[in-house]
Deep mutational scan, measured.
Amino acid sequence: AVCQVIGMYDYTAQNDDELAFNKGQIINVLNKEDPDWWKGEVNGQVGLFPSNYVKLTT
């Protein structure tokens, strides 16, 4: 993983390639090539999510 982030809001996947997560959930970021849509993993599920829905862990 590149880094870990925390969901600031609940996110519901809109497409099959997206990653759903809940507020407060830890997401392992796998790829930040696109500044707006990062690739991440939660509980074995991998997908894209909007980078503005998360904050970096300290």
Rank of each mutant, 00 (worst) to 15 (best):
I27F: 02
Q45W: 06
Q45C: 13
V5I: 02
Y9F: 15
F49V: 08
E33I: 08
I26Q: 09
G7L: 05
V46N: 04
N15W: 05
L48H: 09
M8L: 15
G40A: 03
Y11L: 02
V42E: 00
W38I: 00
N28H: 15
V42C: 14
T57E: 07
K55Y: 08
K23F: 05
W37F: 09
F49Q: 05
K32V: 10
I26P: 06
E41A: 06
W38Q: 04
Q14M: 10
G44S: 04
E33L: 07
I6T: 08
P50N: 04
A13Y: 06
Q45V: 14
C3D: 13
W37N: 06
V5P: 00
C3W: 08
D36L: 13
N28L: 07
Q14R: 14
V42I: 13
Q4A: 02
G24K: 06
L30Y: 09
F21G: 03
D17N: 15
N28I: 08
C3K: 06
W38V: 01
Q4I: 08
N31I: 06
V5T: 06
N52Y: 10
Y9T: 15
D16Q: 15
A1M: 13
D16F: 05
G24F: 04
V29G: 03
T58R: 14
E41L: 03
V46E: 08
L30Q: 10
V2H: 12
G40I: 03
Q4T: 11
D10G: 06
K32G: 06
E33N: 07
V54R: 04
K55I: 09
A13Q: 04
T12W: 05
D17T: 12
V2L: 08
K23H: 09
Q45N: 15
V29K: 04
G40N: 04
W38D: 04
V29N: 04
V2W: 08
P50R: 09
N43R: 08
W37V: 10
T58I: 06
Y53T: 12
K23V: 11
D36K: 14
K23D: 01
G47L: 01
D17G: 15
V2P: 11
D36Y: 14
Y53C: 14
F49L: 06
G40L: 03
E33W: 00
P50T: 03
Y53R: 13
I27Y: 06
K23P: 01
